[in-house]
Computed example of a mutant assay.
Amino acid sequence: MANRVRIRCINKTDRMNPHERIKNVGGQNADGGRWKQSVDQTVREIESREWEFFVTEGGRTVDVIVATHNGNKYIKTTADGIQPDNLLSLPECP
């Protein structure tokens, strides 16, 4: 069974392409400590089924999945179409 964790923040690049704009995601551990990792690591963990990630949007839980656009893997929420807006709307990670 995969570990499940909430993404609470992101770090963006200066790229305009929404599929390449997120470089890191992060959150808070159960002990209150912070975590942050690259999108590439997040993609690997989702694909290995070791971890599942989600965001909370308007009081509901939305899963984060791996998608591919023009041969490049990126993450988005299941509620998003092609644009990963739910993730892009999260605050910046420290």
Rank of each mutant, 00 (worst) to 15 (best):
T68M: 11
A67E: 13
M16R: 06
I82E: 15
K36D: 00
A79K: 14
D14S: 12
K23R: 09
G59A: 11
I22C: 05
D80T: 12
I7G: 01
Q28I: 12
E52S: 14
R34P: 01
V55M: 06
V62F: 02
F53L: 02
N70W: 13
F54Q: 06
R21S: 12
L88W: 04
R44D: 11
H19C: 10
V25P: 04
Q41T: 08
R6S: 01
R21G: 02
R4G: 08
D40W: 07
G59K: 10
N29S: 07
E92Q: 14
F53G: 00
T56E: 15
K76H: 14
A79F: 13
S38A: 01
F54G: 09
T56D: 15
T42V: 08
V39Q: 01
N70M: 15
R49G: 09
N70R: 15
N3D: 12
A67H: 10
K73W: 03
E92A: 15
R6Y: 00
H69R: 14
I46M: 06
L87H: 05
T61G: 09
A2N: 08
I82W: 14
Q37W: 07
V25R: 02
R15G: 00
D40Q: 12
E50I: 12
N72S: 07
G32L: 08
R6C: 06
M1A: 11
H19Q: 11
E20H: 07
K76I: 14
T61R: 14
L90H: 03
R15T: 11
S48G: 08
F54E: 08
V5W: 00
N86T: 14
G71E: 08
G59I: 08
W51M: 11
E92P: 09
I22D: 05
E45G: 01
N29W: 12
E47P: 07
A79H: 15
E47S: 09
A67V: 12
F54K: 10
A67W: 09
E45M: 12
E52N: 13
G59T: 10
N3A: 10
K73P: 00
N29P: 01
R6G: 05
G59Q: 07
V66P: 01
C9A: 06
R21A: 11
I7S: 00
S48W: 09
E52G: 05
I75G: 03
D31A: 02
V64F: 03
I10D: 03
I10W: 02
K23I: 04
N72T: 07
D85M: 13
E47I: 09
I65T: 13
G71L: 07
C93E: 06
R4W: 05
I10E: 03
K76T: 15
L90I: 08
L88E: 01
N3W: 02
I7T: 05
